[in-house]
Design a protein around this nucleic acid. Structure first.
Length: 576
RNA sequence: GGCAGCGUAGCUCAGUGGUAGAGCAGGGGAAUCAUAAUCCCUUGGUCGGGGGUUCAAAUCCCUCCGCUGCUACCA
């Protein structure tokens, strides 16, 4: 393994296995992680991109019950669906794991044992709602009753959505089970393990302060808010059937029958999934350590992608767990947190099917349309807004007109006038030199922004590169010069073809399929299309005269007003 | 209620102390290779309201209004 290479470990917040994810889930974690991973591979960095489904927790247990199938079967089914949709969206994970894996169970037990051994876990007795009819403990939010503050008869046990007050199920008047409606709710004592997060406040504060300038504001402000409000020790076990059982050697078996809290084992799955990846590829029992542990992972830069809802778990709880092990685990270096994308003025909603989900998105348009739009408008500094008009405008203008039409006009003209081969006549002159100089700047800026995971800015540069090409071809005007000065026209088309070749390289991290189609117009593309490292003057002069080209079909079809009307109706959700 | 973020052109957003910006949309022109696609020029904003600090404020402080999120058992 070449250890002089830059090494980048990338994780996306792992999506709940529970159903198909919407574009809001995609845009904050999986998609930017993939664009960055592809960029890193294109640059030749040693890259490992990890994601997984999060398969534990009460909602999953209950969803399986609702479908009437065993939880493991439910997870198998939806993991496969999500893996398929991810692949169809071009998400190029090195491994898409499962938090319920054997590897993750071992890793979770290891973390728990270390924390227990080091005195960072407590056994405490808590009051939990129990439904005899359901035969189970109920999470707070699955107990429904009348709010003692405002009288709302459908208040949830964790919080009343009408008066927004935080509740305890004990407070509810006439509590009932959200699962069965049963009214025989009783409060029982239940022992649980607690992570003594308070042991790590100072270390966490210092660590977060050290990232004040390289993490987004949204990330440090959320993390500091938690610290400022005072950390509470956190329960890390639950009264559920489905999950990793607490081993008997922790607390002398006092936790028999309990499982670990989903948020305890979910972040560990980043490591567990790396082990799954190593096992799958027969890399040996210790290969995962090269990314995660001690000196073996010393040269790794670890980058995490997530929506803002996930930030507390990745800045406070998981780091506290890592600190508590007393072991040299890799901690996140760059934490890219995202805000939310709203749909036509309100939130995407999984429960009311409002908004666009990954399967529906692919039903109507290829993945690259979505990838480009979402990254060009990613909610980096604040929540962003999806509207169909805006989406239509961006796709039609940027992709169909500025990029697609450039490829089309140059290749078609080349076929009509130069026999479909790279013309050989003429020499590059001042216009071509000026273009190369301008592109040196734009490509460098595009590269810097991708390196910094500044996706909106990066894609604005990419677009500026396409615009520069259109400006050039307008001035070069080969269609005007063709009759009087064939060599001059040849120079313009040769440059145009080289520009298309450049686009194939530059688009690949964002739009892998379209990038390959663009590159294939000129010549075959390697599996990973490498990042241009040469100066533009050289890169744009590399196509061999006489080489045949192959004009592609329409790369990006325009979106018609009628389609927009149809899609708006289709995706408006069940609430309308 | 508490905390956090946001409020800049018709729309989506940059800009965090030094003469208000981009893309789209709108207006005018050029070109006719191309998916009627491109290129050039251009209209447009008392930077949510008010107060303060400063030689200078979209930017810092205070206050008010509005929107959004979080509030620890939804991930």
């Amino acid at each position: 393994m070449n250890r002089s290479m830059k090494r980048i470990l990338i994780t996306s917040a792992i999506p709940s296995v529970n159903g198909v994810k919407h574009l809001g889930n995609l845009v904050g974690s999986m998609l930017p992680a993939d664009v960055y991973a592809r960029f890193c591979r294109a640059r030749g960095y040693e890259t490992l991109a990890i994601c997984a489904t999060d398969e534990h927790g009460a909602p999953i247990e209950l969803a399986a019950a609702e479908e009437g199938i065993p939880v493991s079967e439910y997870c198998d089914k939806w993991h496969a669906v999500q893996a398929d949709l991810g692949a169809r969206f071009g998400l190029s994970w090195d491994h898409f794991g499962r938090s319920s894996s054997d590897q993750n169970r071992e890793m979770t037990w290891h973390f728990a044992r270390q924390l227990w051994k080091n005195g960072h876990l407590d056994v405490r007795t808590t009051k939990q709602a129990y439904s005899a009819t359901d035969g189970r403990f109920l999470p707070d939010r699955y107990v429904i009753g009348t709010c003692p503050h405002c009288g709302n008869i459908n208040a949830r046990g964790d919080q009343c959505e009408v008066c927004t007050r935080v509740l305890d199920p004990i407070d509810l008047i006439e509590p009932r089970s959200a699962v069965s409606g049963a009214k025989d709710i009783e409060i029982r004592d239940s022992r649980h393990l607690f992570l003594k997060q308070t042991n790590f406040v100072d270390q966490l504060r210092a660590w977060i302060a050290s990232h004040k300038n390289d993490w987004p504001v949204i990330v440090t402000s959320i993390a500091n808010k938690w610290l400022d409000e005072g950390l509470q020790d956190r329960g890390i076990t639950r009264d559920l059937e489905w999950g990793f059982p607490v081993p008997d050697d922790i607390a002398d078996g006092q936790l028999a029958g309990k499982v670990f809290y989903v948020w305890f084992d979910a972040p560990i799955e980043y490591i567990g999934a790396t082990k799954e990846w190593a096992d799958k590829n027969n890399l040996g029992d210790d290969a995962w350590r090269d990314w995660w542990h001690g000196d073996r992972a010393k040269d790794v830069t670890y980058v995490e992608f997530m929506g803002k809802d996930n930030v507390p778990f990745h800045t406070i709880i998981f780091p506290a767990m890592i600190l508590g092990t007393g072991e040299p685990w890799k901690k996140v270096d760059r934490l890219k947190g995202f805000n939310y994308i709203n749909y036509d003025g309100a939130k995407f909603s999984t429960s009311s099917k409002r908004g666009i989900f990954m399967d529906g998105a692919l039903d109507i348009l290829p993945a690259d349309y979505w990838r480009y739009y979402l990254m060009a408008n990613s909610p980096e500094s604040s929540d962003s807004m999806f509207t169909w008009e805006h989406f239509q405008g961006v796709i039609n203008k940027d992709l169909a007109d500025v990029l697609g039409n450039f490829v089309n006009r140059v290749t078609k003209f080349c076929v009509a006038r130069f026999d479909g081969a790279v013309p050989s006549e003429g020499e590059y002159g001042d216009d071509e030199k000026a273009l190369a100089a301008r592109l040196d700047t734009l490509v460098a800026q595009y590269t810097e922004h991708l390196e910094a995971c500044e996706f909106r800015k990066a894609l604005a540069e990419l677009r500026a590169i396409w615009v520069a090409a259109n400006e050039y071809i307008t001035v070069a005007a080969p269609w005007t010069h063709f009759k009087a000065d064939r060599a001059k026209a040849a120079v313009g088309i040769r440059m145009g073809l080289n520009l298309i070749h450049l686009f194939g390289h530059l688009c690949w991290p964002v739009m892998p399929t379209a990038a390959r189609a663009i590159h294939h117009a000129i010549q075959n593309a390697p599996e990973i299309i490498p990042w241009p490292s040469k100066p533009m003057a050289e890169f744009l002069g590399q196509l061999e005269p006489g080489q045949k080209i192959a004009p592609p079909d329409v790369l990006f079809a325009k979106i018609a007003d009628e389609q927009v009307a149809e899609w708006r109706a289709r995706f408006s959700g069940t609430g309308l």
